[in-house]
């Protein structure tokens, strides 16, 4: 039932044995020890399992691992150093328990790639698919604004 797939993971070429029903978040966890993308709702409704596939954010809890064949998968663990978004999240205290944070970080990167100077309304709408039960939302909005400034300055 399992078959080998090849893909790029955070820049490196990798191979994994996956079953047809296995999701990307499971394979990242079981095969690669990556826990930044994590399953919470399991229904594509909270954003905790967000990963980038060929640069586009997907819900790793619904995305079948087999579909990642040949793609570039990026997780929050990808970068060696903190980027502007992560720095801004720390400086603005934009998390409490941190369970939702990797998803917000990845989604914010995608937002800022598309809209380097987002309005507050754009931020709220773009990130509305990511939930934070600790409700660090006001701080997250501030962090996104700060990250946008940091990225424009550098």
């Amino acid at each position: 039932m399992r078959r080998a797939i090849q893909f790029r993971l955070n820049g490196a070429s990798v191979e994994a044995q996956v079953a047809p029903h296995e999701t990307l978040v499971e394979v990242l966890r079981e095969e690669f020890g990556l826990f930044g993308a994590r399953e919470s709702c399991g229904q594509g409704l909270c954003g905790c399992c967000t990963v980038l596939v060929d640069g586009t954010a997907v819900s790793g809890c619904l995305y079948l691992a087999a579909l990642a064949e040949g793609a570039h998968v990026q997780t929050v663990e990808g970068a060696a150093e903190l980027d502007a978004v992560q720095e801004a999240f720390i400086e603005r205290a934009a998390f409490q328990c941190g369970f939702c944070t990797p998803g917000f970080v990845l989604m914010t990167r995608q937002l800022l790639d598309e809209h380097p100077d987002p309005s507050e309304d754009e931020i709220r709408h773009y990130l509305s698919g990511n939930l934070c039960r600790c409700a660090a939302y006001p701080e997250i909005i501030e962090a996104v604004k700060l990250a946008a400034r940091k990225r424009r300055q550098s």
Binding site: G36, T75, F89, I90, G98, P102
Partner: peptide, 23 residues
């Protein structure tokens, strides 16, 4: 003093330890 949380780096890089991750 508003010290940033000590575990900030762990949380923004997805490396904080939760039982959720344990195998």
């Amino acid at each position: 003093r508003s010290v940033p949380r000590l575990e900030s780096w762990l949380k923004v890089t997805g490396r904080a330890e939760y039982v959720h991750n344990l195998r």
